[in-house]
Design a binder for these strands. Structure first.
Length: 480
RNA sequence: CGGGGCGUAGCGCAGCCUGGUUAGCGCGACUGCUUUGGGAGCAGUAGGUCGUUGGUUCGAAUCCAAUCGCCCCGACCA
């Protein structure tokens, strides 16, 4: 416990003060800071590099599945937003407006997009005429604005970065297939690249996207045992097609409304990684998205400096050639011990210590961020060994997150047990009759919500609230 | 928007209750020397409209009012 009391000088204790810990890590790991405008954030280079790595992997997956990127403007005429009744009701309270331009008040106010369905469907109406134009599989990377009342860096900011896919299809089946495909891509990304297991399933009616027929989501467990929605995919039915009159002629020459989907993930994924893997030492990043995968800390005296530094530079060059993201910590005024702690706090998966004693033995010492284990490694074949170790770390982090989630997930059939567990923080798998009253009661009693309805938990039982027949268990948890 | 807490150097804080020289301390920054395998030492230097506005007073970081912002808990949310 000496270690944790030492650490308290730098970041708050993750076990006793999680929100403070989160703030400390985001700021001291140099991910982001708050801005002069309340609720907005400045994403710093280290945090942005993390986001860029996520973007690259996702963007590749979108393109491999046949999607193209495009870009719609940030400003939307207010009247567009009002075309779809449920949609406007859902978003109106959190819209920000542009009212003046060129020194004059505008004739029609412009909404800074809270999401782009309206302007996109307005446009799709002109782009789609025939079944030959379908499907339309488009995505955009953009910023959006929602005037949230309680902002937190990355988790809930008024402006954030995201991607929003908007597709149009000739048939309901195609649109549903697309909706499920995309939430599946998100699941693969979060599990394989962010090393966090998720529950994937449909949202309850109360949690559904405003304007959607069905919403699917992936939910991950954070270190405080709360849930975070890491990605969503919506089957829009023909709601927006009807609101914006988007029709096509089918092969028989008949007019039909198109079927739509939309899906997105945001910079909230950065907060998800922070809270999903962080520990008492700070940030801990999965190798696949870590901006720096290996940091080399050179150790030397004046007489051995040149020798160590040139060896470090050589190793770094070899790593880069094989696609490993490596950095040599050349800061001359800091002691190695400080650097060890600094890079651990910033979540770098592997640290290499390289000093004269190592060079004498043609080796280096490599420490793992997750386990704290140190081991000597020979310089010959080093790059392959590092690549292997990065892969092991990626898998170990997923396994650890899975163990943590399993230890905090309970099948519950008694309502009293459910409320007790929600006070402690946990995922509860409980039967639910699908009645909105029972869902509302859980929320009123515990502030927890039904996060999603996973397919793999389907099966008959009795509702944990009212005892009526239930078609399956759902995930109940407090959420971000 | 309701409840609670807080705004003093880049960061963290003391000073305020009980008004009074030149507003302090730690960390960080800068310079020099010595150091460097788990958070270095010494010496020196720089850095402040005390959140903002107004009021009380001979005199305000300190008392009063308003206002802005931040954090936590609730309602809302990617």
């Amino acid at each position: 416990m000496v270690v944790s009391s030492e650490s308290e000088r730098f970041i708050a204790d993750i076990n006793t003060d999680f929100p403070e810990w989160y703030q400390d890590v985001v700021r001291k790991a140099d991910l982001a800071e708050s801005s002069p405008v309340a609720g907005c954030m400045t994403i710093k280079p280290y945090g942005y590099a993390l986001w860029e790595n996520m973007v690259r992997i996702l963007d590749d997956a979108f393109k491999e599945s046949g999607h193209q990127n495009l870009y719609f403007p940030a400003l939307i005429p207010e009247s567009y937003l009002q075309r779809e009744a449920e949609h406007v009701e859902g978003f109106a309270p959190e819209c920000a407006y542009v009212t003046h331009g060129g020194g004059k008040e505008l004739e029609e106010r412009l909404v800074f997009r809270p999401t782009s369905e309206t302007i996109i469907w307005q446009t799709y109406a002109r782009w789609i005429e025939s079944y030959r134009d379908l499907p339309l599989l488009y995505n955009q990377w953009a910023n959006v604005m929602r005037w949230e009342m309680r902002p937190r860096l990355f988790l809930r900011t008024r402006e954030f970065l995201w991607q929003e896919g908007h597709t149009a299809h000739a048939t309901q089946e195609d649109a549903i297939r697309e909706t499920l495909q995309m939430v599946g891509i998100y699941r693969t990304f979060v599990e394989e690249s962010l090393a966090l297991p998720v529950y994937m399933g449909e949202k309850s009616a109360a949690e559904r996207f405003a304007g959607a027929v069905n919403t699917y989501a992936i939910e991950a467990m954070m270190k405080d045992r709360k849930a975070i929605q890491a990605g969503t995919s919506h089957f829009l039915g023909q709601n927006f097609a009807k609101a914006f009159d988007v029709t096509f002629q089918n092969e028989r020459g008949e007019r039909e409304y198109v079927w739509g989907t939309s899906w997105g993930v945001s910079t909230r994924l950065v907060g998800t990684v922070v809270m999903g893997h962080g520990d008492e030492k700070g940030l801990s990043l999965p190798p696949r998205v870590a901006p720096i995968q290996v940091v080399i800390v050179p150790i030397y005296r004046e007489d051995s400096k040149d020798r160590v530094m040139s060896a470090a530079a050589q190793i770094a060059a070899d790593c880069r050639r094989d696609g490993i993201r490596v950095k040599v910590d050349e800061r001359d005024q800091l002691k190695p011990g400080f650097k060890f702690n600094d890079w651990e706090m910033r979540g770098v998966p592997l640290r290499m210590e390289l000093g004269p004693k190592d060079l004498d033995k043609d080796q280096c010492v490599v420490a793992e961020r997750v386990t704290g284990q140190k081991e000597p490694m020979p310089l010959s074949g080093l790059v392959d060994a590092l690549a292997r170790k990065l892969g092991e770390t990626q898998r170990a982090m997923y396994a650890a997150a899975e163990v943590f989630r399993a230890a905090n997930t309970y099948d519950v059939d008694d309502y009293g047990d459910l409320t007790t567990l929600m006070d402690q923080g946990a995922f509860v798998r409980a039967h639910w009759c699908e009645g909105p009253e029972c869902e509302a009661k859980i929320k009123a009693d515990t502030t927890a919500t039904i996060r999603c309805i996973p397919e793999e938990l389907r099966g008959p039982g009795k509702c944990v609230v009212c005892g009526a027949d239930s078609p399956g268990r759902v995930i109940v948890a407090k959420a971000y």
